[in-house]
Design a protein around this nucleic acid. Structure first.
Lengths: 216, 216
DNA sequence: GAGTGACACGTACGCTGTACGTACGTCAAT
DNA sequence: ATTGACGTACGTACAGCGTACGTGTCACTC
């Protein structure tokens, strides 16, 4: 039995969350999974909140960034956004704790640095780069939330298209008509759709600002 | 003392959340605030999860939609998006439970109907309307999360610009340079920035698709 | 009046996070 | 070699949680 470590505790927590959902997590369950007394955990982690922060940080730090500096900047932005989204695939249940937790740790700083660098190289000034980054983060976080919030515990779940089919088409004509489209959601496709929209938006924005400064 | 009602229970729950934060909520606290036994609540609400769903639904249903059908569609989209965001101002703490809860209730259906109608009238086909709506929702939800996630309990909090100022500028040159911009966040301004970006994006998308169908 | 259902409530059980005290290992200074 | 300090594992204990279950009290219907 290896020594009890903060890292081992965090790993056990992530494991437990992925196996049984974020609600199932408790200090006692984690300790049991590690074959250890409950209070032993507190020698390595100050409290449960800090443990969840550590979980978030750990998950976040595993994001794979294969940034290709030779690629077009629009493509680099796309790749970085996808990298962020991949945690929803590797750790679908843990994503909730990442997303619903305000973390101020260097783990979240590397992606920020990369994104800002890419945007600055593309030609955006500091203020625009920050605002654009915030917009992308909001979009990605929102997308992740849809992806994982749909499945609060488990089961593929036919997410309310049962209700959608019996919705009052007089009160909600559009919803009624588009029910087949609203009922199913290819997360990959939806994510790419919005991502593409955002990237095209900043592309034209950059173009316009360049033309403006050329005139000025 | 008025009769105990599901509505009164939900109202008390929202009140409690706004006063003491989402973590402080418990059936016992709510009952105490209502001057009532704990188990009496269960005559009107099946369990805590359902109560939180009701909270989410109640908050969501209070969104003010003053849709102006005569306005330009881009402006209508903007107004609807802002209406959604306003819950973050009226119920900052409750927003977390709205956002982190998958709700399939008619309360969330009206905004969807309005949004789809606006987009369809603007000229988007069904599929695009749904995808665009999803993109906007993701962005709005993500923005709300940033707005309320920053303040997990209370206090204006100087959100980590303390850490930002002592970040290693060699490792994170961009973050270091832009620390003044990253440290503060005018939520209103940031939201509008991204919203404007999204609206311009779908405006050009619509233009392109119109030109294409004109050629075809 | 008897019966019925809705509702307020008390008790109780199994769970939670964690404060506190204890016991044991290792290392430093005496 | 002895002592002491210290880090770590652990058990106990407590306050609080959600809620299953049973009981009492009404208003209302037959």
């Amino acid at each position: 039995m290896p020594a009890l470590t903060r890292a081992r505790i965090v790993a056990a927590a992530i494991d437990l969350i992925e196996r049984e959902g974020a609600d199932a997590i408790s200090m006692r369950r984690i300790a049991a999974d590690l074959g250890v007394g409950v209070m032993s955990l507190y020698n390595h982690v100050p409290n449960k909140a800090a443990l969840l922060d550590a979980v978030a940080e750990s998950v976040l730090s595993e994001i794979a960034f294969d940034d290709d500096p030779t690629a077009e900047w629009t493509e680099r932005v796309r790749i970085q956004a996808r990298a962020f989204r991949q945690i929803a695939h590797h750790y679908p249940r843990s994503t909730m704790v990442v997303v619903s937790r305000q973390l101020n740790s260097p783990a979240g700083l590397l992606p920020v640095e990369r994104a800002l660098a890419t945007l600055r190289e593309a030609g955006f000034d500091g203020e625009d780069a920050v605002q654009i980054l915030r917009t992308f983060i909001a979009y990605i976080i929102g997308s992740l939330l849809r992806e994982v919030g749909v499945t609060p515990t488990f089961a593929p779940v036919h997410r309310g298209d049962v209700q959608l089919s019996r919705v009052d088409t007089a009160l909600f004509p559009e919803v009624g008509t588009l029910a087949p489209l609203l009922g199913v959601c290819d997360h990959e496709k939806s994510f790419e759709y919005g991502l593409d929209m955002l990237i095209r938006a900043i592309a034209v924005q950059l173009q316009e600002s360049k033309e403006e400064s050329a005139r000025g």
